[in-house]
């Protein structure tokens, strides 16, 4: 454990969450700690000098385009592949030499999910439950009901979305201390996606940790506390989702019945006037919209439109230069 080196790359986890979960003795060590991890493939690709710490009670989103190194990192966490240098630790345990002990406390959804085609979902869960010592059948049935999964059909006839549900339930059914999910909501319909996100938030609230990867920021932002951006095998940024949001620039257009009060808007911090129109203004607002809404409260507002750029645009445009 070398937290000091981590602090330079990664923000320390939210202390309030850490405190909430930290009472438990088994939760004293960070669920995920990567230090200077390098895994480079002969054909290129892989990850270089990756350091990252994820704390208790945190949902961490691992974001990057396909081929950036997300799956490589995740498979190193699972000891399916080994780094050429650096250390991978889970709960303070070595990911390789203590793999069995670490795996007892984690649930994993692979990115390229391959299932036992001849088994039904029920049989698949029973197989893993035997190896893990749980959960019981009733718990599995609850999960299946919640995600609307048919348990007794062979996996090979299931749709993409339903296969993904099998993978997700397999990872979550034991309510492990750490969930490692590679592109968890791929193929899921929006309703199920929302259920899964709610479950992940609940896990974090209970002090457990979620590490999920995605190539879509808007999805990550919906559920994650922090986001790490990986490109070409390098972790180039780690930020709180709330800070990314705060940096978003909103395009605001306001029309009023009587133009007199509009001057009050112009002096507000973070507000820039882009254009004056006949009965109103076109503005650019950085950060919170609260000040401008307060100023508008006393006016006769005819129309108000707010366009929020996608977080994608905000985040990626900000880091475009760094990555290249």
């Amino acid at each position: 454990m070398r937290p000091s080196t981590l602090a330079t790359r990664a923000e320390a986890p939210d202390p309030s969450r850490a405190r909430r979960a930290g009472t438990d003795a088994t939760r004293s060590e960070a669920p995920i700690a990567l230090t200077g991890v390098t895994k480079v493939y002969r054909g290129g690709g892989g990850v270089r000098d990756l350091s990252l710490e994820v704390g208790w009670g945190e949902v961490f989103g691992f974001l990057g385009p396909n081929g950036a190194g997300k799956t490589t990192t995740i498979r190193m966490l699972l000891d399916l592949i080994r780094p050429q240098s650096g250390s991978v630790r889970l709960f303070g345990l070595d990911a390789r030499t203590d793999a069995v002990a670490a795996h007892r406390r984690l649930g994993y959804l692979p990115g390229e999910l391959a299932l036992y085609e001849r088994l039904s979902a029920r049989e698949t869960f029973a197989h893993f439950a035997r190896l893990r010592g749980g959960p019981d059948e009733a718990t599995v049935e609850n999960w299946a009901r919640e995600l609307d999964l048919e348990l007794d059909r062979p996996v090979r006839v299931l749709s993409r979305g339903n296969r993904q549900k099998v993978g997700l339930i397999g990872a979550m059914m034991n309510e492990p201390d750490l969930l490692v999910l590679d592109e968890p909501t791929v193929g899921l319909d929006p309703l199920v996606q929302r259920t899964v996100h709610r479950r992940l938030r609940e896990a974090a609230t209970a002090g457990r940790t979620v590490f999920l990867s995605s190539h879509v920021l808007s999805e990550v932002a919906e559920v994650a506390d922090r986001v790490g951006l990986i490109r070409d095998g390098r972790l180039i940024a780690i930020e709180r989702v709330s800070e990314i949001r705060a940096r978003a620039v909103h395009a605001v257009e306001v029309r009023v019945g009587a133009g007199a009060g509009l001057a009050a808007l112009e002096g507000l911090g973070g507000v820039t006037v882009r254009e004056r129109i006949e009965d109103g203004l076109r503005l650019e607002v950085v950060g919170s919209l609260n000040p401008i809404l307060a100023a508008l409260a006393g006016l006769d507002v005819l129309d108000l439109s707010v366009h929020e750029p996608s977080l994608e645009e905000v985040f990626l445009s900000y880091y475009d230069g760094i990555a290249r």
Binding site: G107, A114, F128, L131
Partner: peptide, 8 residues
């Protein structure tokens, strides 16, 4: 991948 994610 799934098999070895278990404590085996």
């Amino acid at each position: 991948d799934l098999l070895l994610a278990n404590p085996v």
